[in-house]
């Protein structure tokens, strides 16, 4: 998994690491049970402080996405969504609202936006090799 940080995004570096690991998990480029890069190698690769990587991994662990096995490293957990259906919907609603605001600013019409969403769903579906989307299985 190759990560890349953007210091012009305004998003804290640790959250960028969190998001990229989540994206990798959702798109299937990181599989359940697979080991994550060690804290020091990842810090050196991204040219960031090890505290930042440690903070990102702690956040992922508290969200139930990865687990730490002492002496072995961090692993992606199978079926990693610990949230109830309603909580998941709430989280997604907020993200969708942000997307809608952005689309409005960019003057992207409803039709075009929906097409884009479908296009991305198809792209993710291909990567995971499943017909559905990674988040579509109900609890």
């Amino acid at each position: 998994m190759l990560m890349h940080l953007n210091f012009n995004s305004g998003q804290p570096a640790y959250l960028q690491v969190v998001d990229q690991i989540k994206t990798a998990a959702a798109s299937g480029s990181l599989q359940a049970g697979e080991i994550l890069p060690g804290i020091r190698p990842l810090a050196e690769q991204l040219r960031i402080n090890r505290n930042t990587v440690a903070k990102a991994y702690a956040e992922l662990e508290s969200q139930g996405i990865i687990e730490t096995q002492p002496g072995k490293g961090c692993f992606l957990i199978k079926n990693h969504s610990p949230f109830t259906r309603e909580v998941r919907r709430k989280i997604l609603r907020e993200e969708i609202d942000a997307l809608l605001v952005k689309a409005h600013h960019l003057q992207v019409e409803k039709e075009e936006l929906l097409n884009l969403v479908n296009e991305r769903l198809a792209a993710f579906g291909k990567k995971t090799g499943s017909h559905g989307t990674p988040a579509s299985n109900p609890a």
């Binding site: 020091r40 402080n49 440690a54």
Partner: peptide
């Protein structure tokens, strides 16, 4: 510059960060 600062700091923080 690129190569060694991270390497040295990584090594430094390895034990008891």
């Amino acid at each position: 510059r690129r190569e060694f600062i991270e390497t040295v700091i990584g090594a430094y923080q390895e034990t008891d960060p």
